[in-house]
Design a protein around this nucleic acid. Structure first.
Lengths: 199, 199
DNA sequence: CGGGCTCTTGAGAGCTCTCAAAATCGGTGG
DNA sequence: CCACCGATTTTGAGAGCTCTCAAGAGCCCG
């Protein structure tokens, strides 16, 4: 579960190299040359940037199946593993402009536009509902949700504070829309209403 | 300045067709098939979506040189001309995966991530400063700024209300960072400080 | 000159943040 | 298995920023 997985001798480099990261480990840093892009195989990645005054902002979470790291010239954000994470790393030079790559980039544009919309016009409760549904869409089960990230991560993703995240979750709980089994284990009881809130 | 400009007979369609739009005119609508993408030649385009409760959100402004409209399947937002605008329209089917196209998409990802960051972590004043610098970067002159959009457009772009936009501009003016010649004519007096604010 | 739209300004309400402290969780060592 | 520690999460109270509602000012155009 650590170090670089060697690809079999003779395998073409364009296929990519599998690498493993532990919780909190840095995958690449802001302002470094964007020499690679990667596909998430397992785990979770956060893409974040820190401001001069210490504020942190998480631009995206990448889950298995997501491709990230195609950026012009240098990386615009730092990528870190949220938990045990495995990636396939490709060279940017091999970036072919294939159909799959284009679709992946379009999807990325779509995602960040949706995120901007969420941050621009949604209240705390609406952001949380929207966030939970986003997690639910990628979870093995729709209702049972295991959060890999901390409240601070969620706050920095949704442009809120930890306290507001906590309070909003408790409010959703009081309203019967979710159950908080433990801080990281949630049950979405009323997805229809959550969806109505997050629209 | 209206209707479709016919391309010369025999010219390949992949080259694209020039079209002109008047202020407020719709270029394409949300949920319609994404059959074309376009290059802005002159004028300004806003990409917006309306929520069920009537709130509007502008995800981006596109200025001359910008390419927009590459979206998976259907358009996720409505594009409208902010003023007299001319575009070159291409067929999505001709989307070749050329280097220029890839760069353009990477730039788009970059822009919307930056916008999300702005909305997630910036105060009203910071958003305004950042917005003015963004406009300045695309203006013929760095300091003199002609805004083509209304206060409402700016508000919907920055996730604020018209009143807050107006008040924040007045505050920047009182602090001597900008001059408001007329509502649409601004002078950026102290770009260095604006930049410091918008970081 | 009048009408409609845009922009500005004011006052109060509401939501989120800040600061502070208590409660809970998870891992470690006895 | 239990006690302890640090990190995380929750809760509370008050401040601050932005929104809402309302009205006045400015501008364009007929």
């Amino acid at each position: 579960m650590k170090g670089v997985a060697q690809r079999p001798p003779g395998a073409p480099s364009a296929i990519g190299v599998v690498r493993y990261f532990t919780s909190g480990q840095c995958i690449f840093s802001e302002d470094n040359p964007a020499a690679h892009f990667m596909l998430v195989v397992g785990g979770l990645v956060r893409s974040c940037s820190i401001f001069a005054d210490g504020r942190r902002f998480i631009g995206a979470f990448y889950a298995p199946g997501d491709i990230f790291g195609f950026e012009p010239g240098t990386y615009r954000a730092t990528a870190e593993a949220v938990c045990e994470t495995s990636l396939v790393v490709y060279h940017t030079a091999d970036l072919t402009g294939s159909r799959q790559m284009m679709d992946s980039m379009m999807h990325r544009i779509d995602q960040s536009c949706a995120h901007a919309r969420r941050l621009g016009r949604f209240s705390a409760i609406e952001r949380l509902a929207s966030f939970l549904l986003e997690c639910s869409d990628r979870a093995p089960q729709r209702q049972m949700l295991t959060l890999e990230m901390t409240r601070q991560d969620i706050a920095d993703y949704l442009g809120l504070t930890v306290e507001t995240v906590s309070r909003s979750l408790q409010q959703l709980c009081r309203e019967g829309l979710i159950d908080i089994i433990s801080p990281r284990q949630l049950v979405l009881c009323d997805i229809a209403t959550l969806r109505a809130i997050s629209l």
